[in-house]
Design a protein around this nucleic acid. Sequence first.
DNA 1: CAGAAGATCCCCT
DNA 2: GGGGATCTTCTGC
Length: 207
Amino acid sequence: MKVLDRDFYKRDTITVSKELLGKVLVHQTKNYTVAGRIVETEAYLGPEDKAAHSYGGKMTPRVEVMYNQGGYSYIFTIYGMYQCFNIVTEKQGTPQAALIRALEPVENLDFMAMRRFNKVYTDLSKKQIKDLTNGPGKLCIAMDLGKEQNKIDLCSSNGVDDIYVYDDGYQDFEIEASPRINIDYAEEYVDMPWRFTMKGNMYLSKK
DNA sequence: CAGAAGATCCCCT
DNA sequence: GGGGATCTTCTGC
């Protein structure tokens, strides 16, 4: 298994978004390790992309981290109560990112089950198992990703609260492209096929 | 299972 | 003061 490095993330956002599929996202602290395989992503191509927070070169405290070189976490609050986890891409000064929209649970399923439904994994219903991490807000709850995890470098360890992605060689799947979810306001960018999914995976956020 | 509606608050303009 | 890269609950079939 190989941890993805700076060179992986510094490439163009569509390539990174596609190649993140099948890789394993890990959140590790002194107290726990949780991990899930990435099965759905979306590319946000600011400043051109009207769906991106960095559209038009917007530079505010919230989007600032998108201007970093690739390999940093960008976590923002949505609808007042949920978080979305992104990985910054491209070189310094190009404010683009890949949104992680869905995972397949891999490690520490009881931790995820407790955080989502306050039950151990074996007590979950079929529906609850499927709902553990099949959406951007849900996976942040399950993986314990919140505003404290914003702006973390995925390419270096701080030894206290680490996020990283590794490649275990899994590539037995097909990639499908489709329009992104819930960006009705993005005008001519609404239909851009910049959502990438692992074909047929049961943890996709939508079909 | 599908559709509608409500929750809730930080970040801008 | 408005709105959002969402999810849960409730309703009805």
